[in-house]
Amino acid sequence: MQACAALGRPALPLQLRRPLHARPAVRLQRGMAVRASMAGAGAGDDPYQVLGVPPNADSTTIQRAYKKKLSEVKGKDEAAQQRIEAAHSQLMMAGLSARLKGGVSVEKDVLYADRARYFPWRPRLWMAAYDILMYSAVAQALMLAWALLSPLTAGTQPVIWSAIAGAVGNIIKQNRLYPVPKGGPDSPPDEKKQGSKNILRGFFLAFLATFCGCFFFYTLPDAVAAQLGRVMPVWFYEGQSMLLAIGTCTMNWLFTAFTR
């Protein structure tokens, strides 16, 4: 106090004077309390029940359920939205922890989530629902029957319509895997673009299937024969339209039924 008086500063009462090292401890305790309260929010909720998925659900099913649930309550029920987001975060962190610990079977999408993906638009193996399988089989069978029963009048039209039917089936499948949010104009930009992404993905898969069908069923055999110095049989060239239709219908059904 004498030193303070000598410097012209007012002396502080004893109860207001505390060691400087005590102040960070107070801040630390407050920060721990805030984090604890945040961690305990919604701790009693089962994340699987909140998202409506079984305990053995994979990351794709969890992501699909999360987007669907979020689109239903966004802008309507803030508490439900927070529970859904907390459940999704909890399950994602559980998958990451399983990966870091090792010795646990983790899905590839989670295992390599932090790695750069080459060709992110590449088709990935995925089994379609039964109704999409049946729709694709009937549509492609009709196109194939058209090409085989009326080869002179059909021409390449079955190829074109097969690609269109494949695009429709893939768009329906993408909309089920990645539902379009219904949040309205207040939705984030990424969610607003989901519908256009699904359409582009569907047309991309149909284009790739049509290209593969034409290439493997007609172009490749003809190129291999030319490289070997041989000529394909006459029926191969006379039945070009039918071969293209067979390849296109087959590949469009496979891509719609087993890729995403």
Rank of each mutant, 00 (worst) to 15 (best):
Y66P: 02
G52H: 03
P123C: 10
G102H: 06
V110N: 08
A87L: 02
G44R: 10
L51H: 01
G102K: 06
V110I: 14
A41C: 07
G44Q: 12
Y112G: 00
E78I: 07
D109M: 02
Q63R: 12
E107I: 02
Q81K: 15
R115D: 10
R115V: 10
H88N: 15
R99D: 03
V53S: 02
Y118W: 15
G40E: 14
L96R: 15
G40D: 13
A65Y: 05
P54I: 07
G40P: 00
D109P: 00
S59P: 00
T60R: 11
D114Y: 06
Q90P: 00
V73Q: 02
M92K: 10
Y66E: 04
V50K: 02
S71W: 01
Y48I: 00
P55Y: 01
P54Y: 05
R117W: 06
Q90C: 09
A79Y: 06
R64T: 15
V110T: 10
D46N: 13
A94Y: 06
A86C: 07
L111S: 10
Q49F: 01
N56P: 00
G103E: 07
A98E: 13
M93T: 08
V73C: 12
F119C: 06
N56H: 14
P123K: 05
Q63T: 15
D109E: 14
P47V: 00
L51G: 04
R115T: 13
R122G: 08
S97C: 07
E72N: 08
Y66Q: 01
L91C: 06
D109S: 15
E78N: 08
A113W: 02
M93E: 14
E78T: 10
E85R: 12
L100E: 12
G42M: 01
V104S: 11
Y66N: 01
A65F: 04
S59Q: 09
V106N: 05
G44D: 13
T61L: 06
S105K: 15
Q82G: 13
P55C: 01
H88P: 04
A116E: 12
G52M: 08
K108N: 10
L111W: 11
S71T: 06
T61N: 04
R83M: 03
K108Y: 08
D46P: 04
M93D: 12
L51W: 05
T60C: 04
W121R: 05
L91H: 05
K68V: 00
S37H: 11
P123E: 05
R83W: 03
F119I: 07
S59D: 09
Q81G: 14
A43M: 09
A87G: 04
D45W: 07
E72Q: 14
T60M: 11
L91Y: 06
P123A: 09
K76S: 11
E72R: 06
D114F: 10
R115Q: 14
G102C: 04
V104F: 08
V53M: 06
A80C: 02
Q49V: 09
Q63G: 15
D77C: 05
Q63P: 00
Q63K: 11
L91V: 07
K74G: 10
K76A: 12
E72K: 04
I84F: 05
K69L: 09
S89K: 14
V104D: 10
K67W: 09
R115P: 00
P123W: 12
